[in-house]
Amino acid sequence: MARDKAPLLIVDQLTMRFGGLCAVDALDFTARGGEITALIGPNGAGKTTLFNCVTGFYRSCAGRIALARPDPDSPGAFRADWREELEELTRSTRRSARLEGGEIFLLERMADFEIVKRAGVARTFQNIRLFRGMTVLENLIVAQHNRLIGPALDLAGRLGFGAYRARERAAIETARFWLDRVGLIDRADEAAGALPYGAQRRLEIARAMATAPTLLCLDEPAAGLNPRESHELTALLLSLRDDHDVSILIIEHDMSVVMAISDHVVVLDHGVKIADGTARDIRQDEAVIKAYLGVADEADIAAMGA
């Protein structure tokens, strides 16, 4: 396994409490660029809470969430080690800093929509959240909102005049590409809410990809899929990583999916990290087996051992 890739997301001492309940407790981990990082753990381990902190839906109580976004046009130019600049940024009150070939962000200082817009973090939800009354195509067009509205002063564009036309054509092309990629091109004009469950999951991923993210956060994308659909999902995620230069942070309970695609696995239990390593390391980790034996079913253990 290649461990020399540059860190993309660095989480330091992240803590999130709800009243007396500590959902995430002083968590540290790093996700690297060009990798698929899986977050696993029993229910209530704090995985979704962590997601919500990273994507700005929750304001974390303490800790640092740092993200690097290499410039899309020159991916090679970004430096591998940006820890020093990160420390400097943390001491300042700024939210981001420009580096050669990219930009680094402190996500805990940013609002949710800015995290998507500027830092390029897209996400899906455990219980699918589509714009159900809008068509499949419209869902993907809304995802490109920030590119479509263009410069802040382009009022004519905002009402659909002028330079907007060209931007809209480009957005339709992007939408067409991703719909084709997830096999929904023939249903582009149907209402999203009318799609079958598996197609809704794929649409949500396509919609997230339409925001052109650096990091894609998927919250249980295989939940409720049949074996064939999970298999297709696995292939899709690998192709996103390899062909589209997207790093993925994934929460998943389906161990066959996790083991098949993960470059790196982080195991949480009760808000604490209990293991961190490659899929192979995790499979043999005593603490993980113990945490899982308490809650998971046989199939999960079998899948981990496989």
Binding site: F18, G19, T48, N52, F57, Y58, F125
Partner: peptide, 11 residues
């Protein structure tokens, strides 16, 4: 309010 349960937004 004074005695209400806090309304945590479910995401």
């Amino acid at each position: 309010g004074l005695f209400g349960r806090p309304d945590v937004e479910k995401v």
